[in-house]
Amino acid sequence: MLRAPSPQGIHARPAARIVEAARRYEAETVLAVGTSTARAKDLLDVLALAATGGVEVRVEASGRDADAAVAALVTLFDVMAAGG
């Protein structure tokens, strides 16, 4: 479980960074907030998640390099949480 970066949540720029990270991997990565899901490789999908600051975000991936894809996203969330 991750948290959307505060205070603005996954708005445009964080979303773009998430997509950029997800696209480096073959795995299909899915972000979920509550009952909504978004394909992590699709910027507009991620934006439409409307993940506000601090909400719980779940990450799941399937495919050959799924573990690496999840790890990359988890690291990215850390970086964003730190304001990076």
């Binding site: 948290r3 690291t75 970086v79 949480a81 730190a82």
Partner: peptide, 20 residues
Amino acid sequence: TFDFGADKATPGGATDERNP
């Protein structure tokens, strides 16, 4: 120097810090 948040970068994201 790098001021990143909690390290949850475990493959699969299985281990989660309870208090980052």
